[in-house]
């Protein structure tokens, strides 16, 4: 039994373009029954998206795409993404705000603001004034500071010639040469441990993307689940990961990794009910799934 889902996509709170409400509305119109927003390293979209999903009668799963690394600070350094899925029930009261990864997300927003202001401070005075008239950006609280995609669009709109400078500079945010080793210097196994300590389920995002296949295979062995269907997987790749997940008794998910920068790729299959049950820590009766 499968439920039509999209459990991995981004909003303008990270490198997507849609507001949380637009994100939910798009999926509501597609007839999806269960969705998640999985922004990079923060959960700013979770509350507004959850509220929109509740109004639309959809099951909403609080989530985050956690950035870890393979070979951090060494040759072959590459990002490795692990999805964290929380039970829907953490939305009750203020449980979500108590989670470690949620609080880490607030730090990520503060560090992002610092990084952008550092880049601005290195620009010629007239360019800085063009992008940040009267220093208005620096006055914005970190949670409302333009995130990556919004900042890119702002730079391009104000002065296209500054795009390459910003693009190159912002890579430091995650890279071992940058200031955020404490946030992003995790190995995938450390990310998985943090996700589990938070009461969430760990799922390896788009596992075909990583260059170190041998290391990736070991992380997959460790993980609770695998993202099988995603716009980053060709059909045959997805089927091979599905076979792997089923052979190893792992959970698997069906998502888009939508950033609203290409035509939406509708996931070709749903997510197994048992995976949703594991995430939500509850059993779904058949009729409740059909009417979620």
């Amino acid at each position: 039994m499968y439920v039509q889902t999209d459990l991995h996509g981004h909003t303008l709170h990270s490198d997507g373009r849609a507001t949380p409400e637009e994100y939910v509305e798009f999926r509501r119109q597609l007839g999806m029954k269960a969705i998640a927003v999985a922004d990079h390293d923060l959960m700013a979209a979770v509350r507004p998206a959850a509220a929109a999903a509740a109004r639309a009668g959809m099951l909403f799963i609080p989530a985050m795409e956690v950035t870890a690394h393979l070979h951090y600070g060494a040759s072959g350094e590459e990002q490795f993404h692990v999805l964290a899925y929380y039970p829907h029930a953490v939305l009750e009261g203020f449980q979500l705000e108590q989670k470690f990864l949620y609080k880490r997300g607030l730090k990520v927003q503060e560090r992002w603001k610092e990084l952008v202001l550092e880049w601005l401070s290195g620009l010629a005075a007239e360019d800085r004034e063009l992008l940040d008239p009267a220093g208005e950006l620096s006055k914005k609280p970190a949670p409302t500071f333009p995130a990556l995609q919004s900042m890119i669009l702002l730079v391009v709109e104000k002065k296209r010639e500054l795009f390459e400078s910003f693009r190159d500079f912002h890579q430091r945010f995650w890279h071992s040469s940058g200031p955020n080793k404490d946030l992003f210097g995790w190995t995938p196994e450390e990310a998985i441990a943090a996700i589990r300590a938070d009461g969430a389920v760990d799922v390896i995002a788009h596992p075909t993307r990583y260059r170190d296949k041998e290391r990736t295979a070991k992380v997959i062995d460790e993980a609770k689940g695998i993202e099988v269907y995603t716009s980053r997987h060709k059909a045959e790749v997805a089927e091979s990961f599905r076979a792997l997940a089923e052979a190893k008794g792992k959970h698997w998910t069906s998502s888009s990794d939508d950033h609203q920068n290409a035509k939406y790729a509708m996931p070709p299959c749903g997510t197994p009910v048992r995976t949703l049950e594991r995430i939500c820590k509850q059993t779904f009766k058949l009729e409740s799934i059909l009417t979620i």
Partner: peptide, 8 residues
């Protein structure tokens, strides 16, 4: 438009 990897 522009994304983190360039023009799209």
């Amino acid at each position: 438009s522009f994304g983190r990897f360039g023009a799209v």
